[in-house]
Design a protein around this nucleic acid. Structure first.
Lengths: 208, 208
DNA sequence: TTTGTCATGTAACATATGTCACATCTAACC
DNA sequence: GGTTAGATGTGACATATGTTACATGACAAA
């Protein structure tokens, strides 16, 4: 990682801010599957994603999950932005889906930069806005759509980030949508009949 | 409305900011039932609630609704905060539930104040955080709970804002929860059997 | 009092989704 | 090759929720 790469991954920031980030941030390499944040955990630093794919999801008290959205290079964990003022606890869980590189910044700097760098402030606000929108879309999906539409929608999101052949099991999809494996298998069969996907073992191929 | 009242309704702001608000904001009186914001509408100003109760909800393309949360005196519409950088369109609809007094602030001031007043920046960030949390709770409710729990949860929220006797019809509840009137009537009957509510015509009385 | 409108009650049925039980298949490892 | 664990297929059934159709009840205007 170099400061050059930082400029590429996070365009539109001010020059002195790049220096500031470079001098104060810690770079952390995580492995696919590593947990980055759990519901209830106190947030100690702001996280920016440099590389890799991070999955954000909601967990209830019985351990049931619900997939919310992905973060990738150039994006920030809103929960860690939003907690900057007070050292609050997280309301979401995050897990690395691929090997990933994360930049962590002490919370007090985050606060300082907000008033010091207009570009940082804009980055944070835009980040909020897009996460807010993701949540609203999620609410739409659950409130207004049946499982078949939600499944299609879900696969679509995966394909955007991961390419047309998804290495995923029916059980994992069921967990992400808080459904059950049999239901997902059933609906996938129907999607296959409609030529939307081809089902392989451990993988689903998206058509069109 | 006086600048004194402003200090009471929005505590913890800096003194010069109160003056700035007072000199630049427009006060708008709206009637119960008035629409303040529609999905797709371009946001022209930031809205702060001085008095009254404002309902925020999501609408789909077929006009189906889903209740999100209430805003009351001392709170701000996050959508209008979040849109400050670019003149974006709203993703939510807002409606006055009671007669209400709204303070509107031109978007460019909002932007300026963020760097000028630390207290404004904190107000905005805290506002984001609580709305974000509301949305996460909503997702929890739809994803993990059955309709009976969601109904109880919904009535609970109403009672907190409106007192123990709710002037509301079963049809209105059904609209807010994207369900149907018969289902709500059925579940209310069960709640009445469990002594959680008493059902009156045009009203529901919350017990305990 | 009568009438009409809107709110509510209710039974029967339709449908989506979840659950259970078990069969079958595939890849990996001995 | 044979064994095994995990992934997937499938039918039968349970349950929650939505839908239809109609009855009843409450209130207000005429």
């Amino acid at each position: 990682m170099t400061i050059e790469k930082l400029r590429v991954i996070f365009p539109n920031l001010e020059e002195p801010l790049y220096e500031d980030i470079w001098n104060n941030a810690t770079i952390k390499e995580v492995k696919a599957g590593d947990s980055l944040l759990r519901v209830g955990q106190t947030i100690r630093s702001t996280m920016l994603i440099l590389d890799g794919l991070v999955k954000l999801y909601r967990e209830d008290d019985e351990g049931k999950e619900y997939f919310l959205y992905y973060l990738q290079g150039g994006e920030a964990c809103s929960m860690s932005l939003i907690c900057a003022i007070r050292h609050n606890t997280s309301e979401m869980s995050a897990k690395a889906l691929t090997d990933a590189t994360i930049l962590t910044i002490p919370l007090d700097l985050m606060d300082l930069w907000m008033s010091k760098y207009k570009s940082w402030y804009q980055f944070v606000i835009l980040s909020y806005r897009s996460r807010f929108e993701e949540l609203l879309k999620t609410i739409d999906a659950i409130a207004f759509s049946n499982m078949d539409e939600r499944l299609e929608n879900y696969l679509n999101k995966q394909v955007e980030k991961l390419g047309t052949t998804l290495k995923i099991t029916h059980q994992e999809i069921a967990n992400d949508l808080n459904s059950s494996r049999e239901v997902i298998s059933r609906l996938l069969k129907k999607m296959e009949a409609r030529n939307r996907v081809v089902i392989h073992r451990n993988a689903i191929e998206w058509i069109k």
